[in-house]
Simulated assay, not measured.
Amino acid sequence: MLIELAVGDAYGAGFEYAPPEFVTAHNTLRGYVQHPTHLGIRPGAYTDDTQMTLAVAELMVAGDPWTPANLADRFVAAFARDPREGYAGRFHDFLLTVADGADFLRRIRPESDKSGAAMRAAPIGLLPTVADVLHHARVQAAVTHDTPDGIAAAQAAALAVYYTHNDLGPLPEIGAWIAGQVPGDWARPWRGKVGSKGRMSVAAALTALAGSTSASELLRRCVAFTGDVDTVATIALAAAARSAQVTPDLPPALVETLENGRYGRDYLAELNTRLLG
């Protein structure tokens, strides 16, 4: 799951808010592309979506208490050990100056309804019950996105993984099932460009999931929306990776050239094994 979501993140990063004609021309899955303006993110590198997901997954496998303080510690540590582009500008600057998790919590203003809490929620969907998923998603979301929409988007993203991981039904029904657990019109098909709000990214991811039977088809659909497509692909590919209904056919060119530094592809694979174990 972690490699698939990182591939979605890294591939989508080349197209995030890029002009539609650029997306149409280059969304071929033949390889990673250089974003036309975000030149600090090299092709094949993942962004904040994956890095913050790692922080969540690492806390889960460590088995430490699920508290805002421990989550904040993990968010700070993940960035400090491997600073990278891709974060929203103000939050990136915040992470450059924050000392530790306690400092993070003292200074953060968790008033956003954007997609930051949803993009990192996938590992939570592996927990054993819906109640567990809803609780853990709410706690982690509230650290940075303590708003009704920010929390609901994170819960819906985590429940997408829960639905596929437990094979609860056909993929076209995933949105309707989530709507029965979290307030929101999650079954309505998303159309057009995806904005920065968390609900938008999750709705687009669920729409792409409901209409896809293979991982490669899913990734192309996510990017074709245009807009915040790296987050859409991160959420969708994480859920698809746990579904027996989705053929795992991501192109080897994308998997093999995903970044593989200290916290790259091999680290993701090892952490994924521990997470699923």
Rank of each mutant, 00 (worst) to 15 (best):
R191V: 15
L218C: 12
S216W: 02
E259N: 11
G211P: 06
D228E: 09
T164S: 06
G195T: 07
A158E: 06
Q155S: 08
V61M: 02
A203F: 11
Y17M: 11
D230T: 09
R265V: 08
A80L: 07
Q34H: 12
I41T: 08
E58Q: 10
R81K: 13
A137M: 12
A157L: 07
M60N: 05
M1L: 05
P189F: 09
T164Y: 00
L39S: 13
A269Q: 14
Q155V: 06
V98R: 12
A160V: 15
N27L: 13
L96M: 15
R262G: 13
L209W: 07
Y267F: 15
G116W: 01
P251L: 01
V98A: 12
L250A: 09
P19V: 09
A204I: 04
N272S: 13
A253W: 06
R188K: 14
W190C: 02
D230H: 04
F79N: 05
R262A: 15
A88T: 01
L250F: 08
T67P: 02
H38N: 11
G261E: 08
A137H: 04
V23Y: 13
F94M: 08
V33P: 10
H145I: 07
L5Q: 14
A236K: 06
N166P: 14
N272C: 10
A158I: 02
T226H: 13
V182H: 00
R109A: 11
D230P: 09
L275K: 10
V232L: 05
G14E: 04
N27Y: 11
D146P: 08
Y163C: 02
A239E: 09
